[in-house]
């Protein structure tokens, strides 16, 4: 393990400090900087790791998530590929078969369509169809979600589509700390991991101090963000921040237990069940359309395991069952603090 000074080279612009209490090397970064830093650290410790995708090399990716990686690791580790999503996903499958640890980037979630066949019909199935003889360890990075005034097909939330696919794991961190730990864990995982990065929170105005040295966060573990006993609010991705904002609008006597799923698949059932058995009320919040979204699955789990604990029907605050609108209307489409607060209030009054 390289020390903090050596690691600082990965992104010297970031501020660093040693936490006085714990002695931990810390770095101050936003979510996208946490990802870049982690990619650099992982490429440094494992020469099998390669990044490939559209504009990820010289340009450092359209969101700069791979900024500086090609300069540091060379053009035989970071590849600008042809403009070809199925090609990126399919060759990544082959690279994994050939012993590499590829990190393909699909530039926006809206462009996953052409790569769907390779991800779902090959990457996800190889372990099972070869009975373990061939496995596909790779991490597919995809910026996801709305709220940044992007053009058409740059703002969707398709996580449920992939959570429905056995053989895939789906992760969506929303803080720099979780992004760093989950990305390192995803690279350790022997199976394909779809790593969704909520672009709305790539660059929040405030940066977080997080440990600089490598750490992992287990895939499949939700996080209790705030403890409470009146109502459980479950969310993931950028919506977590809308929920936190909603909590500020509630009367003081409503104590919210806020859960960030962090991993979409496999689902951390234990955490949500324990919380709802305690609170008896639940509001689930996500950007994706309501019908057949992940909220439906979570609500079903809760009625299966918390039936007699429930004091109100589980509520979903989600994107509408429409096509994601162009950006003039996107903030009306996406769940916001007002809608979340309203749902919480109604659940409390039920």
């Amino acid at each position: 393990m390289s020390n903090a000074t050596e690691q600082a080279v990965f992104n010297p612009k970031l501020r660093r400090r040693v936490d006085e209490g714990s002695g931990v090397n810390q770095v101050e970064c936003n979510l996208v900087e946490a990802i870049t830093l982690t990619l650099a650290q992982e490429m440094d410790r494992d020469e099998r790791v390669v990044c490939l995708g559209e504009d990820v090399g010289l340009n450092g990716g359209v969101f700069r998530a791979t900024d500086g990686l090609q300069a540091r690791f060379g053009d035989q580790r970071v590849f600008d590929t042809p403009l070809s999503e199925s090609g990126i996903m399919g060759t990544a499958v082959g690279l994994a078969m050939g012993g590499m640890r590829p990190i393909p980037e699909i530039q926006f979630e809206g462009f996953m369509g052409p790569a769907y066949d390779q991800l779902v019909n090959h990457a996800a199935r190889y372990r099972t169809r070869s009975r373990g003889a061939i496995t596909i360890p790779m991490v597919v990075r995809v910026p996801v979600g709305g709220g940044i005034h992007a053009p058409e097909l740059h703002s969707d939330s398709p996580e449920a589509i992939y959570a429905h696919q056995p053989g895939l794991k789906v992760v969506m961190p929303c803080t720099p700390y979780d992004a760093k730990g989950l990305l390192a864990a995803a690279l350790e995982d022997p199976d394909p991991v779809l790593f969704f990065e909520p672009k709305r929170v790539y660059r929040l105005p405030t940066r977080d101090w997080i440990p600089e040295d490598r750490y992992t966060i287990p895939i499949g573990q939700a996080k209790v963000v705030t403890e409470g006993d009146s109502v459980t609010v479950i969310s993931w991705g950028a919506s977590v921040y809308q929920c936190l904002e909603a909590m500020d609008q509630l009367p003081e006597d409503i104590s919210v237990e806020m859960i960030d799923m962090r991993t979409i698949s496999p689902i951390d059932k234990d955490t949500i069940i324990a919380s709802v058995q305690k609170t008896g009320r639940c509001v689930i919040v996500h950007e994706a359309p309501k019908t057949a979204g992940m909220g439906a699955e979570l609500a079903t789990i809760l009625q299966e395991h918390c039936f007699l604990y429930l004091k109100a029907p589980v509520q979903r605050v989600a994107g509408f069952d429409t096509i994601m609108p162009y950006y003039k209307l996107e903030l009306e489409y996406l769940p916001n603090a007002k809608r979340v607060a309203e749902a919480i209030t109604q659940v409390m009054a039920y």
Partner: peptide, 25 residues
Amino acid sequence: MTPLCIPIGTQMLHATGISWAMKLR
């Protein structure tokens, strides 16, 4: 080798990827 491939024309990408890995290694 890889197993028999049912979806037509999808396996060539794996060959490109595998041989790419051979080259990198």
